[in-house]
Design a protein around this nucleic acid. Structure first.
Lengths: 178, 178
DNA sequence: CAACTTAGCGTACGATCGTTCGTGTGTAAA
DNA sequence: TTTACACACGAACGATCGTACGCTAAGTTG
């Protein structure tokens, strides 16, 4: 995951991993059916790590705005300070794999969809609970939240902007209120 | 640029280009000092093409909100319907090259900075002209506009969402008014 | 006409790529 | 004690990578 976050899923190479790990090329390759499987497992592992980073913040939060706020805050904090040297692997893989068909792209899209579905679900729950006006455009709010995440990731990775997290939070605040 | 927009700047290969063009590998390689120069020229060409796509919309627009609105609209239209099969090359290269040092990354960052500088300049001009309140946080508005661009690009490329352009425009509207 | 530049070609090099064998070496189950 | 299995190894394969060299044909400039 560390390598893939910097070099991309295509930049992953069996030989490179082997020398990083002090192993032989065959020793590394034996753990995966083929390179594509390695890429898929890297995506899966990154999704699992992201989920584990977010889940605690959601625990015991009621569906709706409260849960949404907690999720977005944990998400932004994750993007601001990722566990990988090259930033959020899902974001990087999404930008890399868009445009190319195949199972790897599908896995990345599925991962992205899961998070999008969470945002939408909580927005609708907030509407249903009366926390947001009944005519709120949930998809519009979801789009902007996803955009703020992408923008935060770009500002943090490309520009190393330390204020990016707060800017994203400030912009998101009116979207998380009634 | 077509290849790089899909495969990334690292996915560019002399041999691949050669067979695409029906030329020999040496015939293609002779036009560039080395591969890095090829990558840099691809970035330069993409910047030039983007500039050419935006410039007409800015012509004869007064600095300030009017010029800013025209620039953002042209920008979103460009992201919505890019001249490359893999989406905006600068956006793709930015996501690919963040995290890796070197001249290619520097060129991508410089290209991104140029656009960011345009947005900031027009925002400040709008403040100076009294079109925006004097206490407007130009950098905050700039951050959100850049985020909407990134989000639009992601939605268009990864999700092929036909409504992404309108969603970005709708979200940007309050940022382009007084 | 002669000198020079340009563009493209074929060929070759060392390196790295993903993948596939056969082999040895442990550890765990029968 | 024997069998089975997981793990890592070295070696080799065909392919592709970037780069370099020498050559030819066409065009430009003096």
């Amino acid at each position: 995951m560390d390598v893939a976050s910097v070099e991309g899923l295509d930049g992953l190479s069996i030989g490179g991993l082997a020398s990083d790990l002090g192993m032989s090329k065959a020793g590394v390759a034996g753990h995966f059916a083929n390179k594509q499987q390695l890429q898929l497992e890297a995506v899966d592992a990154a999704v699992e790590l992201f989920t584990a980073a977010i889940a605690p913040a959601l625990r015991e939060r009621a569906p709706g705005l409260d849960r949404l706020r907690a999720g977005v805050e944990a998400w932004f904090a994750y993007l601001e300070d990722t566990p990988f040297p090259g930033g959020c692997l899902i974001q990087a893989a999404a930008a890399e794999q868009d445009g190319r068909p195949g199972p790897v792209r599908d896995a990345v899209v599925a991962a992205d969809d899961r998070w999008r579905a969470f945002l939408l679900r909580e927005l609708h729950a907030a509407i249903e609970a009366g926390e947001l006006p009944a005519d709120t455009d949930a998809e519009q709010r979801c789009f902007v939240l996803l955009a703020l995440g992408a923008g935060l990731n770009q500002a943090a990775q490309l520009r190393a902007d330390p204020r990016a997290g707060d800017r994203a939070r400030r912009a998101a605040r009116p979207l998380l209120d009634g």
